[in-house]
Computed example of a mutant assay.
Amino acid sequence: MKITGDQQLIKKMNKSIVLDTIRQRQPLSRADISAGIGLNKATVSSLVSELIDSRLVTEIGPGESSGGRKPTLLLFNKQAGFAIGVDIRVSDLLAVLVDLEGSVIREKSVPLTDFTPENVVDQIGKTIRLLSRRLPDSPYGIVGIGIGVPGLVDETSRVVSAPNLGWDNVDLAGALAAEFGGNLHIDNEANAGAIGEKLYGAGRDSQNLIYLSIGVGIGSGIIVGGALYRGTSNFSGEVGHMTVAEDGPLCRCGNRGCWETLASEKALLDRAAGIWRDHTPGLEQILDAGKRGDKQALDLLNEIGSQLGVGLANLVNILNPELIVIGNRLSLAGELFEEAMLQTIKNRSLSYHRKKTHVDFAKLGIRSTALGAASMPITAFLTDPDVSVRELS
């Protein structure tokens, strides 16, 4: 019995490898796959036939001949199914419907004023149902759902703490699983953002990167050797609570001088409220003023850029990353504070450490987390193409 079980496991693994090879290198032939992964042609042909029968792979006609019969080329069927990614933020939630290659089909933003778990779960459910209507024709429909949360998420997908939402020990996955099935993934929003930028954005060619989500707070997702680094308890990346000023402002965590009290979007808005006393400008108004050359706005943005550079220099010295990607809402102001930020990194980091480190802004804009969240159920589905999927009404 064990031998049979092992054979089934090996076949499933090989099938997943063949599918991944087609996704990464398409279009290619059966012979190309055999040569690339070391499986014999008969085994590859059998597995490809199964993938065609399951409509995950399609044949597109003959390729170039190398002397014999022209080979039949294969493509991954990116519209065999779809996934939904949700980014829970402190003012709204952003949800995207994507195909199996992460291309956005639809998206929806929903304002949030009531952050109780019950209301957020209700809004997520409504948004998922809305995006799931009138799907393009596909054999698998919605293959799964991923959600990024601005807080600590443990190994069981329980939201241990999300201070900006007022959440403690919330079983978000349990509240949604009854309706939306088992291929449901909950993770910290910065981790999801890091995955999104690694797969689809600025980090596609990088194996070691840090994604910084800079909004109300500062969080990070850390990619090491192409994989997400999670730490012992799944809580890695809380760089916003790195102390950068011993007697600095009081942070919501109870400490003083945390990096996010000096360099986040909230820090920017708090300072702006002290400068423009007749009104409280939002980020967009500060950006508009800076682009018009307003000195107060530019000075404020340069100050935030310098404070960002202080923390980034620490990360460069400690982790020596290949790439740092700055995302979330503060990245919208990147062109206005970039020079001050880079100059501070240069002044405060070790020259050998920063020599090969590049700093960039998120290529996915404010979609990084939603797209990264959507990729999680896609990865799970494609690792096990035989997984059953619940249809959404």
Rank of each mutant, 00 (worst) to 15 (best):
V224S: 01
G226H: 09
G226C: 13
G226M: 10
A227K: 15
Y229R: 04
Y229C: 06
R230Q: 07
R230F: 04
G231E: 14
T232C: 14
T232Q: 14
N234W: 02
N234T: 01
G237N: 07
E238D: 02
H241Y: 06
M242E: 01
M242S: 01
T243Q: 11
V244P: 05
A245W: 05
A245D: 07
D247H: 07
G248V: 06
P249D: 04
P249E: 05
C251T: 05
C251N: 06
G254K: 15
N255F: 12
R256V: 01
G257H: 11
E260M: 07
E260V: 03
T261H: 00
T261I: 02
L262N: 01
E265A: 06
E265K: 08
K266S: 12
A267P: 12
A267E: 10
A267W: 09
A267Y: 08
A267Q: 13
L268Y: 02
L269S: 01
L269C: 04
L269D: 00
D270L: 06
R271V: 02
A273H: 11
G274H: 12
G274R: 08
I275A: 09
I275R: 07
W276K: 00
D278R: 15
H279Q: 14
L283P: 04
L283T: 07
Q285G: 09
Q285K: 15
I286Q: 03
L287K: 10
L287A: 08
L287G: 09
L287T: 10
L287P: 01
D288N: 08
A289D: 01
A289I: 02
K291T: 03
K295W: 10
K295G: 03
K295I: 15
Q296D: 14
A297N: 08
L298D: 02
L298Y: 07
L300W: 08
L300R: 12
N302Y: 11
N302W: 06
E303M: 13
I304Y: 03
G309H: 14
G309M: 11
G309Q: 13
V310H: 07
G311W: 03
G311H: 04
L312P: 01
A313C: 11
A313I: 10
N314R: 12
N314K: 10
L315F: 07
L315P: 00
V316L: 14
I318N: 05
L319I: 12
N320W: 14
P321A: 10
L323K: 15
I324L: 13
V325H: 11
I326E: 04
N328D: 12
N328H: 07
N328E: 08
L330R: 07
